[in-house]
Amino acid sequence: MLHIVNKSPLGHAALDSCLRVAQGGDLLLIEDAVYAASAGTLFEPLMKDALKRFKVYALQPDLEARGVAAHLIEGIAVVDYGGFVDLVTQNKTCQSWL
């Protein structure tokens, strides 16, 4: 299953909830959730822990828009919108953690 999160984990619980409930699969960070892909934040240890269970992706245009495309946590893959579409097709279902 593809889990899509769109909120910064530093201000919202959506990513925490996703990581608590979902047991694994693909995780795509879009919109404000791309801050979770940045190295050096308070959330980094939790993200590194999540990488043991999830394949984690971050949306490139959202990273670039926010000036955080450099210094990503190691192991997080970057995709464009085409890659986003591919992730949806590769997974039987997807869930947006709104």
């Binding site: 769109n6 879009i30 245009p61 464009d80 919108y81 085409g82 986003f84 579409v85």
Partner: peptide, 16 residues
């Protein structure tokens, strides 16, 4: 941003 993301996603769906 939801409408923008949805639109760009739609375009990518069609391009694929």
């Amino acid at each position: 941003q939801a409408s923008d993301s949805a639109y760009l996603f739609c375009k990518a769906v069609l391009e694929k």
